[in-house]
Amino acid sequence: PPQTPIRAAMTSIQQLRGDLTSSGDQPSTNLATYFKNCTVDPTQDVLKRLETLGQAFSQRFGQAVGPRCIVLGRQRFNLGVKLYYKVMEAMLKSEEKRLSVQNFSKLLNDSTFHTSLLACALEVVMATYGESSFRTGGYNHGSGGVDAAETNVCFPWILDVVNLSAFDFYKVIESFIKADPTLSKDIVKHLETCENLIMERIAWRTGSPLFELLKQEHEGGAAEQVETPAS
């Protein structure tokens, strides 16, 4: 049958859900082992963060799409969590191979890393359901049963929901694409568009951590600064 935008969207959704069927909403045995190998076990912090951000996401999704869609928001979030765990495990496997270490305590206790990874997973889910499509393309079918045409859940909406700077989100995109080779061409394109938006505009807004980093770089790097006598 001929490919239509709706058929393409339905195929993407089925593919995403299919790819995540075997992924649980809890860390896999392998991922749990990475957590246990840490000097400080991040498990409880990870679960607590997911609970807090899950509530924020469902609530904000309901506000943006309609109060009857809070349950739908929760479903999107749960799918995002599965993808978050799946990609985290793949990233750690790749890092273990590259660095020959098994203790990722610092990374796995970094709240910004987890929030960025989760935000990217949620953006992939939202884009798959057509809820984060950029309107320049000319259509937005809200193929998951949500009429998102009147709402504003397009990127960078997710950054505001999880309270993340665009600059920190940017860091995770390339590794995310590398770690999940099953992402469709359209989703990769979507993430690339997010990347470009950050690079060209969002990272330069007032309050971006980029300015502090540029300042440090200009001063020769924070680590190289001469300590004052007092310290």
């Binding site: 990722f104 990374l107 890393f113 590794s175």
Partner: peptide, 21 residues
């Protein structure tokens, strides 16, 4: 396959990007 341009070098992973190496 997609046309995404991978810019990170082999020695750059997620650990370095979050300053955790």
């Amino acid at each position: 396959s997609h046309d995404y341009h991978f810019g990170l070098e082999d020695h750059e992973g997620i650990s370095e990007l979050f300053d955790c190496d």
